[in-house]
Amino acid sequence: MDELQNKTVLSIQDLSISFGGIKAVDHLSFDVDEGEIFGLIGPNGAGKTTVFNCITQFYKPNHGSIRFKSKQGKTIELTTHKVHEVIGYGLVRTFQNVELIKELSILDNVLIGGHIDFKTSFIGQAFNTKKSKAEEALYRQEAIEILTFLGIADRKDWLVYGQPYGILKKIELARSLMCKPKLIILDEPAAGLNDLETLDFAKVIRQIRQRYNCSILLVEHDMRLVMDVCDRICAINFGKFLAVGTPGQIQKSPTVQAAYLGTENPA
């Protein structure tokens, strides 16, 4: 496996996956750079979610490689790892449906994001040892800091159940920041947000990139957010690569236009 070049943090090469004869992703390749905000766009059914799940190892692709420069500095082949090992390397994701635990407090939900940091064993926690207490206090403090950064620390002890949608998205973001990520993958983050909330969200994404010095991969449907916040964009359709470039280049690309709007002269 080749080491990733200095500026590349994620390299997808020749990615393919089929479901029952239908090629959901077809020989797709693109790279994401360090500190970049990268968008992956395509119409409904284009295969964005499938790509997403392949990267995060919720699916195992049939073909191709996904190399990632972990936060420890090593290049790893993600497809050889289990889904719950991914976060350990500094790659974290959010969910379109905002998968939070309703019955827990906001703070506890964020602490789940720090799960892998806890080193105390079952026994240690069962007996509430000094070490266990210390760890708990340490990560609690971190979580509160993240919540403060996102502006929702005042409600940290409230239950997630019943919180407004915009707050839920921020909680999930907070959770993903606990692991000090190298790459955050956002799954349709603008879904369900109005214009004002989307603008605010774009601001938050930029702040996160700056504070954590990480890359962010957006899988998105909503063009406004993508064009506003992304440094580069990759467009796909029917699981196939269409184009990659800056927002301006993508907007002008004829292949992209044809895919989204149809050709001028229908056959």
């Binding site: 719950h84 969910f95 309703k102 019955e103 994001g113």
Partner: peptide
């Protein structure tokens, strides 16, 4: 209990 997908994504085996 709440979300196996989220649990796995957060590194829970």
């Amino acid at each position: 209990r709440g979300s196996e997908a989220a649990a796995q994504a957060m590194g829970i085996n």
